[in-house]
Structure formats: C-alpha cells, structure tokens
Amino acid sequence: MNKEIQKSWIAGLLSACTASLCCIVPFIAAVGGSAGSASIYFNWIEPYRPYMIVLTFILFGLSWYKILTKKPMPSDNCGCENERKNFMGSKKFLGIVTVVCGLLIAFPYYSNLFAGQGMKSSITTQEKLQTARLSINGMSCAGCTDHIDKGLSGIRGIARSTTSFEKAMTTVIYNPDSISADSISKKIKQIGYRNSLIEKN
C-alpha cells in the first residue's frame, strides 16, 4: 500500500510542478540572469494549467484516501510490528508534500513578491520620447508582467516599460532615435510572448 501512496503523491507533485512551470522557470532564469529566452519553451503549458491543477487534486485526494483508510498491520506473537514504519508513506510526510504542492500551484499568485523594485531607465533626458502600447498574448499570471519588464530593462533607448496582466498590455516609453517600436515588439517575442502593436505616439 505504501508504494501505491508514493506513486500517487509523486505523480501529484510532478503535476503541480508542471502546472506552474511556465512561471517558475522564467523566475529561476531571471534570478540566474537569463530571463530573455526562458519562457518561450514553456508558454505552451499555460492553457493546460487548469487541467494539471485538477489532476493534482485528484492524485492527492487518492493518496489521502489510501493513507487514511489503510488498516494497521497486526502485531506478531513477539509484539513486533510486521511492517516497518516508512516515513515516506506516513501522514506527516504526505502532509508536507501536500503543502509543497499547494505552494507550487499558487506560485503565479505570489511570484511578484520576489520581483525587483522596477527597471532602471537607460535614458536621462525626456526629449523625443514616444510611447508604444502593445497587446500581449501568453501571460498566465501576474508574475509574467515582471518577466517582460525585466527583459526590457537596460535596453538602450527604452526609458520604462509597464506591463498589465489584467489588460494584457505593455506600455513602453522609448527614444525613437535609439530603438523602434518594431524592435521592441521583436524583443518581447524573444522574451517569449506573442504581441502586436496597438498604438504609437
């Protein structure tokens, strides 16, 4: 029975990791300084996230059902237990793994707490600045906004970028003498998000 329980929670843990992979990997890459290309390989997971979450709940539900309904092994004649206590098959361990999976699934909702205070401007003058607004496709959580803004930070000609998850839009203030709106759009695609220019002024 312990092996069946372990198989269930291991599958549930993998499902929980997969559900938030599109946000976890870009975050790890950003910490490592390579945020520019991390999410492009994992954005395809985002539409399947609700199914992975449901699968995780089902697998952990089965694990808890099995461990709570498991009958204790009878003692032998010498009073020793026939089955050794297995920590990985215990309620305590399953509780720890359940909490870890809950944190993994919820990661997109608190990942912005680890974000920086904002991007530094590479422009010191306010002359000739223009604003470009681009619609963004492929964002799965609020953490994606930080991924985009960090990916655009430090690029020559970009003064500031502000991305909204609710509006699915990025607003970029830039110097047209140093960078074009098309170049900004290409950079966002390199970061891993499909986009289109809404307006430029």
Rank of each mutant, 00 (worst) to 15 (best):
E127D: 15
R133A: 11
E81W: 03
L129R: 13
K91H: 13
F93T: 00
G102L: 00
S37Y: 02
A132T: 13
S37T: 11
C78Q: 07
K128N: 15
G61H: 07
L55I: 04
F57T: 12
D76W: 08
K92N: 08
Y51F: 04
F57P: 08
P47Q: 07
S111P: 09
Y48R: 00
F60H: 05
G89T: 09
Q117R: 11
P74H: 11
Q126D: 15
Q126K: 13
T131K: 14
S135I: 07
R133T: 13
Q117A: 10
G143S: 00
Q117S: 13
Y65H: 14
K66A: 09
Q130G: 07
E46V: 09
C78A: 05
I67H: 02
W44Q: 09
T131H: 12
S140F: 04
Q130P: 02
L55K: 01
I53W: 06
T131F: 09
C78N: 09
P108M: 05
Q130I: 06
F114R: 01
F107L: 07
E83K: 11
I136V: 12
Y65S: 15
F60A: 06
E81A: 01
V97L: 00
M139H: 07
K91F: 11
S39H: 10
I58R: 01
L55A: 15
N112A: 01
S140Q: 03
L68H: 03
Q126I: 06
P74R: 03
R133F: 07
V54F: 08
G143I: 12
S135D: 10
N77Q: 07
L55V: 11
L59A: 10
P108E: 03
K92M: 15
